[in-house]
């Protein structure tokens, strides 16, 4: 662009306004183009919101007295939710993704021959989740039935939710997910795989909840607590039946009764996050 020798304020103002209009139009055209349409809403989220029965509040109780630390829940969760295999702890080098984790508790005495006490730790789906408000783009949110969900498409990978979660149950995909070749044909078609650069977490197997509730709605049958008790993959796989799932709003459900047990603990209760996963303390030591 030629700049005249005696550029006056008027000529400058003309150029400024024209350039601003061109830039604004270009920006508008860009934002109205295909990426925006793709982002207009997350189909996954819309489906969840549309079908969730908002009277329900999903919760889980994990009886540490029954837990043997066998790890079946971890394996079942990994398989059900297409969580990539990252090998042993050494191989994964801090990149492992564990929607269901078994955390060894430190308080076992040294040299003790007792079985190591483990803390099964899925996402606690807090009622007041510290991870949700910090997300800068609303990629994580709470469904009407209390599940803390993640929109993978929208996640920008800032990991603020990961550092804000006091329980360490949010996991970042440090690289592209990989599975052994033999597993590729057995990935669960009900659960989306996640790309590199996004955060993922336990969903309480929301796809299973959706499937059961939708089928019941179509068939016109009502569901009872027994339909939910072992719904998530971790609960279903637990040989000791230490994990119970269900509706905390149903006072007669096993999970609601467990939640009111004197043994029931909410982890880090003092933070006020109000977890909907209750851990039932051990009554005796083996």
């Amino acid at each position: 662009m030629m700049i005249p020798r005696n550029l006056t304020r008027r000529a400058f103002a003309h150029r400024f306004v024209v350039s601003a209009l061109v830039a604004a139009s270009a920006l508008w055209a860009f934002l109205m183009s295909s990426p925006r349409r793709a982002l207009a809403g997350s189909p996954e989220r819309e489906r969840t919101v549309a079908t969730d029965d908002e009277k329900r509040k999903w919760g889980m109780a994990i009886d540490l007295d029954r837990c043997t630390g066998c790890g079946a829940c971890v394996v079942a969760c990994r398989t059900e939710n297409n969580v990539p295999a990252t090998g042993s702890a050494e191989e994964s080098d801090g990149t492992d993704i564990l929607w269901m984790n078994l955390l060894p508790l430190e308080d076992r005495s040294e040299g003790s021959e007792s079985a190591p006490e483990m803390l099964p730790l899925p996402c606690l789906h807090c009622e007041d989740p510290p991870c949700v408000p910090v997300c800068p783009v609303g990629a994580t949110y709470q469904t009407g039935d209390g599940i803390v969900a993640q929109i993978y498409d929208r996640c920008i990978g800032c990991r603020f939710c990961e550092v804000a979660c006091p329980y360490g149950v949010r996991f970042f995909n440090w690289d592209a997910p990989e599975w052994p070749t033999s597993h590729l044909n057995t990935l669960n078609p009900d659960v989306a795989t996640r790309p590199a650069g996004v955060v993922e977490k336990c969903t309480f197997c929301s796809h299973r909840i959706r499937s059961v509730t939708e089928s019941a709605r179509v068939d016109g049958v009502s569901l009872s607590d027994t339909d939910f008790q072992s719904l998530p993959a971790c609960a279903e796989s637990c040989p000791a039946e230490a994990i119970v799932f269900g509706d905390l709003n149903d006072p007669g459900s096993r999970v609601a009764l467990a939640a009111t047990s004197p043994r029931a603990d909410q982890l880090l209760e003092h933070l006020g996050t109000k977890p909907k996963v209750f851990h039932l303390r051990r009554e005796r030591r083996h």
Binding site: L31, P35, R36, L39, P133, C135, P136, V137, G138, A139, R154, C155, I156, G157, C158, R159, F172, N173, P195, A196, G197, V198, V199
Partner: peptide, 16 residues
């Protein structure tokens, strides 16, 4: 950012 281009696009759209 894990996904910088998504950041550039989504922050103007969804920043909260």
């Amino acid at each position: 950012l894990g996904r910088p281009l998504h950041g550039l696009l989504y922050l103007p759209l969804y920043a909260r």
